[in-house]
Design a protein around this nucleic acid. Structure first.
Length: 216
DNA sequence: GATCCGATTCGCT
DNA sequence: GCGAATCGGATCG
């Protein structure tokens, strides 16, 4: 794939490459836990001037609305978290710790806050690009965390609140996805809502975030 | 305005 | 296992 084709790559090109399709509006307009589970095994694709990067999602977390104490939506609508109430099937990217970005897929019907945080994935396309952006070459270190995968895929806050239906940033579902064994746990890195088992990941995957690779 | 702190990562002990 | 990095958003005055 040369530089010129990268700049002009179509959604159809990527869909053929990955043998996958765009989910419809109703896929996203559901409870975030349902969407979260169905996003495992799907692809996240990002394209910019450097080229195409894609991962196979293996770890996600669901976040609710005003009733979920761990959610950014818990304290109501602000300029930052507004995408969480917007129409489903778009992105919510936020900046945190003064240096990191995290990528969410917006779920639930419009007007109901909900999102799925993508926490980890297996690099599928553009490993060279990811390696350069991350500054490290160990494959399992490229996308094994929510901020790592954003850095590897060139995702920042300029990509927040965009609809996930173009090569710039999209989710694609494999046409023949095999049954996936999914485990669940409490969400990571939060203080409240630890009682809710809303983290989901593929059983035995070596690509999940490091904190759980070696459980005590 | 001032202060607190985070859906994290990395390097060092 | 612990703390620094680093800054915008949220909260309170």
């Amino acid at each position: 794939m040369n530089g010129k084709s990268v700049l002009t790559i179509s959604l159809e090109d990527i869909s053929v490459l990955l043998d996958a399709f765009l989910p419809d509006y109703d896929f996203y307009a559901r409870n975030p836990c349902k969407v979260a589970i169905d996003l495992i095994g799907s692809y996240l694709v990002s394209t910019d001037h450097e080229g195409v990067t894609a991962i196979r999602i293996v770890e996600v977390e669901a976040y609710g609305g005003e009733d979920d104490p761990a959610s950014h939506a818990f304290r109501g609508l602000t300029k930052r978290n507004a995408p969480m109430w917007d129409s489903p099937g778009r992105s919510y990217v936020y900046f945190t710790y003064g240096m990191h970005y995290c990528f969410n897929v917006v779920t639930s019907p419009k007007g109901v806050a909900g999102a799925v945080l993508v926490r980890a994935g297996q690099p599928i396309q553009g490993v060279d690009i990811m390696t350069r952006r991350r500054g490290r070459s160990f494959l399992r270190d490229l996308c094994s965390g929510p901020a790592k995968l954003c850095q590897a895929m060139g995702i920042d806050s300029t990509l927040s609140n965009v609809i996930l239906d173009t090569p710039r940033l999209c989710i694609l579902i494999p046409r023949n996805r095999k049954q996936i064994e999914i485990e669940r746990s409490a969400r990571i890195g939060i203080r409240n809502g630890l009682n809710l088992p809303w983290r989901f990941y593929e059983k035995d995957s070596v690509w999940i975030s490091a904190k759980t690779l070696n459980p005590a």
